[in-house]
Simulated scan of single mutants.
Amino acid sequence: MATVAFLGLGVMGFPMARHLAAAGHDVRVFNRTESKAKAWADAHGGASAPTPREAAEGCDFVMACVGNDYDLRSVCLGDDGAFAGMSAGAIFVDHTTVSAKVTRELAEIAAAKTVGYVDAPVSGGQAGAENGVLSVMCGGSEVDFAAAEPVMQAYGKIVKRLGAVGAGQTAKMCNQIAIAGLVQGLSEALHLAEKSGLDGEALVDVISGGAAGSWQMVNRHKTMLADEYEHGFAVDWMRKDLAICLEAGDDVGASLPVTALVDQFYKDVQKMGGGRWDTSSLMKRLKAFE
């Protein structure tokens, strides 16, 4: 069992930290809204800390799951940042979806302090976090990954190293690209079915077991057919991720035309007031643009 700090108790971080405590780890938590950290500690044991530095002091591992590049820098750097409290030999594990640029930047700073660094973005959404079955895509040294993997297994169905620091974030970008294209295709299929008078549920029963089947189809078709989107991974966050995807594509010379197109479709959804809707709301955009 390890002493672990968890920074960021949003819809993903709150249950991820809970799984760590349930696995027997000594968990300390930090959240910008301190009352949420105290509520977590009251519910699940462990302790809350007023700053990332105080949460990280004396810990074997420091996990973070925050919003974006800026948020990650803010919990890592400065006098109150986690790096200021971490001891040599400790390992920082970042579950945030951020750019490879900030990942490499922070990994270099960590290395100068003899602190390990693993970038480990996750996929599986809030349900995956709640149920402890996330897919965790990792980048980092083999030594750091080997040390951190058993801890991450508390909430990971699969925890896999893809390469050196930054590889995890690149894998997450591939994941988001695949999701964006799938959701648009599923939206168009269900939209055509509705316009043609087909029963959407019956259609999914037929095609979900074949080559067209996907997680999105199985888990999102019911709410899409019911025009319900107040759940799941928000469009605002997906656009943040797709911007990182497109920048990464430019950096390495990869052509991402479908990603760029679907990103603009999500921009339309934002203009419709759907920034907090689930990413499957591409279906609603099709109906609005009939």
Rank of each mutant, 00 (worst) to 15 (best):
F83D: 00
A84L: 05
A84M: 06
G85W: 03
G85I: 05
M86A: 06
S87K: 15
S87H: 12
G89N: 09
G89P: 08
F92W: 14
V93N: 00
V93W: 01
V93P: 00
D94N: 14
D94I: 07
V98G: 00
K101Q: 15
K101F: 12
K101I: 15
R104A: 15
E105V: 09
L106Q: 03
A107S: 12
E108H: 07
E108V: 10
E108N: 10
A111T: 11
A111P: 05
A112V: 01
A112Q: 12
T114D: 14
V115Q: 05
V115I: 15
G116F: 02
V118S: 04
V118A: 07
V118L: 11
A120I: 03
P121V: 11
V122L: 09
V122N: 01
V122H: 01
V122Y: 00
S123K: 10
G125W: 05
G125N: 04
Q126Y: 03
Q126M: 11
Q126E: 12
E130G: 03
N131K: 15
N131W: 09
N131Q: 15
S135W: 09
V136N: 02
V136I: 15
M137S: 06
M137T: 08
C138T: 02
C138L: 03
C138S: 02
S141G: 13
E142T: 13
E142K: 14
E142H: 11
E142C: 08
V143D: 15
F145V: 08
A146L: 13
A146H: 12
A148P: 03
A148L: 08
P150W: 05
P150F: 04
P150V: 04
V151T: 10
M152K: 06
Y155K: 01
Y155G: 01
Y155D: 01
Y155T: 03
G156W: 01
G156M: 07
K157C: 07
K157P: 03
I158H: 14
V159F: 07
V159H: 05
R161Y: 09
R161G: 03
R161S: 06
L162E: 10
L162S: 09
L162K: 07
G163V: 09
A164G: 14
G166V: 07
G166I: 08
G166R: 04
Q169R: 11
Q169F: 04
T170W: 04
T170P: 00
T170V: 14
T170M: 13
K172S: 03
K172Y: 04
C174T: 10
C174R: 07
Q176Y: 06
I177D: 00
I179S: 03
I179P: 00
A180L: 09
A180E: 02
G181Q: 03
L182N: 14
Q184P: 07
G185H: 08
G185V: 09
L186C: 06
L186G: 00
S187A: 15
S187P: 12
A189R: 01
L192F: 14
L192V: 15
L192M: 15
A193Y: 02
E194D: 15
E194T: 13
E194C: 10
E194P: 05
S196R: 11
G197C: 08
D199T: 08
D199R: 06
D199Y: 06
G200V: 11
E201G: 13
E201K: 11
A202E: 12
A202M: 14
A202S: 14
